[in-house]
């Protein structure tokens, strides 16, 4: 009698527990994971848009200031000088000083290394580094004394890496970065995936924040032969 009821109770309990577990799991697992990812992605898109709004507003404020200067300044030629100087800076044809970060790229060999000599940073890796620096808010970059401008090419010839058509020197290689927030860029770079990628290629970089550094001007010629300003409709 007692045994019987015990069996019934146990059976009932097990079924309930099983059903509960099933319910619990099916209710919770997949759909939520999918939806939180979607939400996270959307939220990231939103942040991107807000970032852009910030940049556009800065740009607009700057232009409005120039515009006001043109209107108020008795000597508009002076304003034109300012405009020209700003553009030169943006195009990378002047040297720029400011606070920032210096990365030093060097060979990284542990005791298990059995490959040959490491002679250069592969271009894809250097591009990855520049990409990451720009994501982290780099304003100006110079690699081994070569200023990175819009039309800078990073490529490989004869197992050597060229930046702006110049061979990089042997390790260690300096990467100078000017940025508004050196501290956060430094930390972001030291914990970046890029740093791990460097280690796969038996390279590593150290990073150091600096109060003041100077990146050189781009020393090549930026030609404009095939493009003209497009008329806006």
């Amino acid at each position: 009698m007692n045994n019987k009821s015990l069996v019934i109770i146990s059976a009932f309990t097990l079924i309930t527990a099983g059903t509960a577990l099933l319910l619990f799991m099916s209710a919770d697992s997949e759909p939520q994971a999918v939806e939180t990812r979607d939400t996270a992605e959307l939220q990231e898109d939103l942040l991107d848009e807000k970032d852009r709004r910030q940049k556009l507003n800065d740009e607009l404020a700057h232009l409005q200031e120039v515009y006001n200067q043109f209107q108020e300044e008795e000597d508009p030629e002076l304003v034109m000088d300012d405009v020209l100087n700003d553009l030169k800076r943006a195009a990378g044809v002047t040297e720029v000083s400011g606070e920032g970060v210096v990365l030093t790229v060097d060979v990284y060999i542990d005791e298990h290394y059995e490959g040959g000599g490491i002679r250069h940073i592969p271009p894809y890796l250097l591009r990855m580094l520049i990409n990451e620096l720009n994501v982290q808010g780099a304003e100006e970059i110079a690699i081994d004394g070569q200023r990175v401008i819009a039309t800078t090419a990073v490529r490989e010839a004869n197992d050597q890496t060229l930046v702006n058509g110049s061979w990089l020197s042997y390790f260690p290689i300096d990467v100078k970065v000017i940025t508004e927030d050196p501290e956060s860029l430094h930390h972001a770079m030291m914990s970046s995936q890029t740093r791990e990628r460097f280690e796969y290629e038996n390279l590593q970089f150290e990073s150091e924040t600096v109060q003041s550094l100077t990146v050189p001007a781009y020393d090549g010629v930026q030609r404009v032969r095939h493009m003209t300003p497009a008329q806006e409709g």
Binding site: K88, Q222, M227, T228, P229
Partner: peptide, 15 residues
């Protein structure tokens, strides 16, 4: 100025 604006991407360009 115009040349640099094309280089920096301040203005739309064509070619």
């Amino acid at each position: 100025i115009e040349r640099l604006r094309m280089i920096t991407g301040d203005i739309p360009v064509s070619g």
